[in-house]
Design a protein around this nucleic acid. Structure first.
Lengths: 217, 217
DNA sequence: CACATTTGAAAGGCAAATGGAG
DNA sequence: CTCCATTTGCCTTTCAAATGTG
């Protein structure tokens, strides 16, 4: 058994978000026939012409920052979007589905929606982290999740962890048992999880290059 | 308040599944470069050359029939795929996610997987229906779902209901209040749900034809 | 009622986990 | 442990049910 999941040093980002390729995107768009669709936060935030504050006085930059951190903190607690959505339903405030959580994290929603959702998520997450400090048993009780069964729950790595793993992989795709142990310790993930990650990574790479043999356009 | 959801006469299908367009499907497929991917049940069942029984002695026809009925019965109980998955996790047998339930219903799995899943779902569903007869309170307790809150739970119509609604719509896209009441009663859905369905249907139709004005290829 | 918008259930993509063979 | 095929779940996306406004 293992204490739910890691808590990979919630350090400062250090990973600039790379505001997607700016300009140069005026290619023959597939056909945006929609009338006047309200833009999403991620769309607005990626073209800083408007500054950080939306016309309705909403601080887009702040929301972007929070959304990013929310994801990291959620994953650090070892929770899925589904669990958050479900737990939210059980609390006093408004309820939201897994889809809603997903959209918020990806900022694939209107500023108005984001503004409404942010305090709800913020409050909930703080509460969840508090419970977690008092022991993971409290956390699981809070989110109402069963201890799971047979199959191991699929772990979701934080963006940082993925990046680190890829870096290691690039340097050495076939680490020894010793090295795996070290990496696992460094990233604060279960050793087995890291080992399997390398196996799967090699497998994917192999399959990918196999396809390239056919030279698909 | 309302008793969870309808139980639209779980009568005999009467709606032949129309085993997808047979033959004539040898169009220039996008590129199935996969090595030798095990075919899914739906793929196998749609080309009856092999008969109803798989090479491993699995009765595909039976599985198809069950999958279809499973969906109807699930919806009749007013349950979502997510709820089934979650409830399954809480029981003794193996646990499965919403994705797994989805794949089973669409038969988007290998015969082997389907064979494994079928008894699990069958047993669970029987139990669920039993609880439901003893009062919906029992059912909700069984699936462990909260009574929900603010926003009304999105209703999912059974395939039959959809078909019937479309038939009505084709005859008359703007039914009177009286007619709506009758349709709702006939299909055993909440009147309001039916009314909104017609509103949304008209809206969708309008938007769709608006697009056609541009004559998209 | 029409219409724009918000939001969730179902479905799809990718990859974490599993299991068999070496 | 490895490789490899396969199973299965988390996250994402689509489409439409629900909501809000005139």
């Amino acid at each position: 058994m293992q204490p739910i999941q890691p808590a990979p040093a919630v350090s400062q980002p250090s990973v600039v978000i790379a505001t997607s390729t700016p300009a140069t995107m005026s290619a023959p768009v597939p056909v945006p026939i929609t009338c006047a669709d309200t833009p999403t936060v991620s769309q607005l935030v990626s073209k800083p012409q408007t500054g950080v504050v939306d016309e309705d006085g909403i601080n887009l930059e702040e929301i972007r920052e929070f959304a990013k951190n929310f994801k990291i903190r959620r994953l650090s607690l070892g929770l899925t979007q589904t669990q958050v959505g479900q737990a939210l339903t059980a609390t006093e405030g408004p309820a939201y589905s897994q889809s809603a959580i997903c959209r918020f994290e990806k900022l694939d929603i209107t500023p108005k929606s984001a503004q409404k959702l942010k305090p709800v998520l913020e409050k909930w997450l703080n509460e969840a982290e508090l419970r977690n400090q008092e022991g993971q048993q409290n956390l699981m009780e809070f989110v109402g999740g069963e201890p799971s069964k047979k199959r191991k729950r699929r772990t979701s790595f934080t963006p940082q962890a993925i990046e680190a793993l890829n870096a290691y992989f690039e340097k050495n795709a076939l680490p020894t048992g010793q090295e795996i142990t070290e990496i696992a310790k460094e990233l604060n993930y279960d050793r087995e999880v890291v080992r399997v990650w390398f196996c799967n990574r090699r497998q994917t790479l192999k399959n990918t290059s196999k396809l390239n043999v056919f030279q698909i356009p």
